[in-house]
């Protein structure tokens, strides 16, 4: 069963240079209880996709379905009750906290808004509880964001997202601003929440190794489109799309004798003026022929996954 699903979702931005097609015709689903990893280069539309799914920005067209309900056209007020069930952790913890609110304020607001608590005492107990689980102490409640370290701030952000016990959590590179030891702690906590409460994650990252270790399925994005979606193990064992292959090949290996291969050459084409055919065609090493430049490959079921490439026509 899907917790979240998008159908032909598009998000275009108008800019001076033209229309930026940040998310272009993306149909993706997150199954209840799973972790879906979304990878791709910077600027490929991962973050925009995430924000559009949560309706933090309005989609240009397409549909967003949450728990079987079409939420595409809900306005800000109508969607408010649903905010309890879905939440987001941003990449930059420094920017995600209100500098004029204490940690206590940050954690008590969601509880107040969604009437999760009946008494002041219960609220404080709950907040202390959450802070302890996140490796923070009760005394951090009275701290302002600027009095916390980066790792502590991100833990507050995750605590804020988890304190509503959501069904779906969008993690937009939540650990990229943290050091490795804090990273692993946070990933463990996320794992625990997942196994206990069947919370589903959409994990956006450009850290391929990280995504590999925590995702059940993986979706690869290129220039606003999905190019490959499938089971993490299978995709890693045998990537089908030339872009996926190149992306995985460029991950540094923990072996000093192995040289890092430069698998990707050239630049990502402009999202304002994407190629008519396959978006990856100008950089692709396995082009089958003219069709790659002329016709956009559809994301189709191939083997055990979905791939958008003419190689498998």
């Amino acid at each position: 069963m899907n917790i979240v699903e998008t159908r032909n979702l598009k998000k275009f931005f108008e800019s001076k240079k033209g229309t930026v097609k940040a998310v272009n015709d993306v149909s993706i689903n997150v199954i209840k209880g799973e972790t879906l990893g979304v990878v791709g280069e910077s600027g490929c539309g991962k973050t925009t996709l995430g924000r559009t799914i949560l309706k933090l920005i309005e989609p240009s067209s397409g549909k967003i379905i949450f728990e079987g309900k079409d939420i595409t056209n809900l306005n800000e007020k109508q969607i408010r009750p649903l905010r309890k069930k879905m939440n987001i952790v941003f990449q930059d913890p420094v920017a995600s906290l209100n500098p004029q609110m204490t940690v206590y304020d940050h954690l008590s607001r969601p509880l107040e808004i969604h009437n999760m608590i009946s008494s002041e005492e219960e609220k404080i107990k709950r907040i202390i509880d959450i802070l302890n689980t996140m490796g923070l102490k009760a005394e951090h409640m009275i701290r302002y964001p600027h009095e916390l370290s980066g790792g502590q701030k991100q833990r507050v952000c995750i605590a804020r997202a988890l304190c509503l016990e959501p069904e779906f959590l969008l993690l937009d590179e939540p650990t990229s601003a943290l050091d490795v030891s804090v990273q692993s702690k946070i990933l463990k906590l996320l794992e625990r929440a997942k196994s206990k409460f069947k919370v589903s994650y959409m994990f956006i990252s450009h850290n391929i190794n990280l995504v590999r270790s925590i995702s059940d399925r993986i979706a690869v994005m290129y220039l606003g489109r999905l190019v490959e979606v499938g089971d993490t193990k299978k995709v890693f064992r045998d990537p089908k799309h030339p872009y996926t292959k190149a992306l995985f090949a460029s991950v540094p290996q923990p072996d000093p004798d192995k040289k890092v291969k430069i698998a990707l050459e050239g630049d990502v084409p402009s999202p304002v003026d994407p190629p008519i055919g396959c978006a990856f065609a100008p950089r692709c090493k396995d082009k089958v022929g003219k069709i790659c430049d002329d016709k956009m490959p559809e994301l189709e079921e191939r083997y055990d996954r979905r791939v958008a490439c003419h190689l498998y026509d």
Partner: peptide, 12 residues
């Protein structure tokens, strides 16, 4: 971003 964060938790 904290304004977006406020909307994400359902602030009016």
């Amino acid at each position: 971003q904290y304004i977006e964060g406020a909307r994400a938790i359902g602030e009016s």
